[in-house]
Nucleic acid binder design. Sequence first.
DNA 1: AAGTCATACAACCGCCCTCCT
DNA 2: AAGGAGGGCGGTTGTATGACT
Length: 319
Amino acid sequence: MEGKREEQQQVLRKGPWKAEEDEVLINHVKKYGPRDWSSIRSKGLLQRTGKSCRLRWVNKLRPNLKNGCKFSAEEERVVIELQVQFGNKWARIATHLPGRTDNDVKNFWSSRQKRLARILQASSSKQHKHKREVLVVPHHNVPTMEVPKLSFSAEEESTSRARLCVTPHVTDPPLPLRLIPPPPDLPNPGTPNASGHLAPHEFDSKESLYSDPHMQISFPHIPLPQLGISFWPESQELMARLDDPNYFSLLGPGDDASELVVGEGFPPDMPLLGPSLCYKGHDGVIDGNMCEEKPDVFYDDLPLDVPDHFEPLPSPSKW
DNA sequence: AAGTCATACAACCGCCCTCCT
DNA sequence: AAGGAGGGCGGTTGTATGACT
């Protein structure tokens, strides 16, 4: 028994896939379709687990994948919007992004989180270095780093994760967002999601939802529990600076910052970063609603000194 | 040129759900 | 109804690569 298990483990392959293995897997799918993954091993075709085969197919071999292609600005925005709404439901989010897998979305998001964490950390060490007076933001108001997982309802969970909502996309009134229709085989698009909300594609006309890949869909208002945030003087100063249309042009030739412009028509009491930030299209036309052309990439776009205005997150053990 | 660091990506692990017997 | 197998999904880790010093 033990020997048999050892034998099995010995022959079980792990690690990077070889081209020959890919070929076998592709042939299997051609013959039988993307199923019966474990039979691939039981037939002796590959020494990989069924799970591993499935993963390889879904993430790398499936047709029409955008492998090795960075997330476009539009894709980034969609991910951010949907993450706010759905939480870490990567598979679900991925259904709105043709050619992207849940793994892609997950990796993309985790990169962003790490980047933000690093920025915050860097700012904190800088603060200690200069012994500056620091801004203490109660951590429930801290822009979203992942909130410790408690027993949130689906809705609570998604809003709890939305707390970094420095993201300019969460606006009131709703920010129109172009969504990619999910694949037609997605079950019953009219079913409310777990939180009782309609899925985003339901907020528009019920007909032809999936026929026009460029349809414009308006998102519902996403509740922000911390709308009453008031800022410390330092931050308010930053707000004022952000409000200055010339502010980003003063940042110099940096591509990201120079793309940022301040949108118009926002309520004066707009929380967080004050005026919603929008992007200037390549033609230079400012679109107050549709941030079509340019990446949100908001961590990148934040002025470098923005993190100075945040207190670093407390360590998880203190939550 | 070499070392270090950050990032992106691929793959594995574990949990959970569903289906079948 | 119970248990096992298969599959889906989210979290995590390891590694390759590029940028920076």
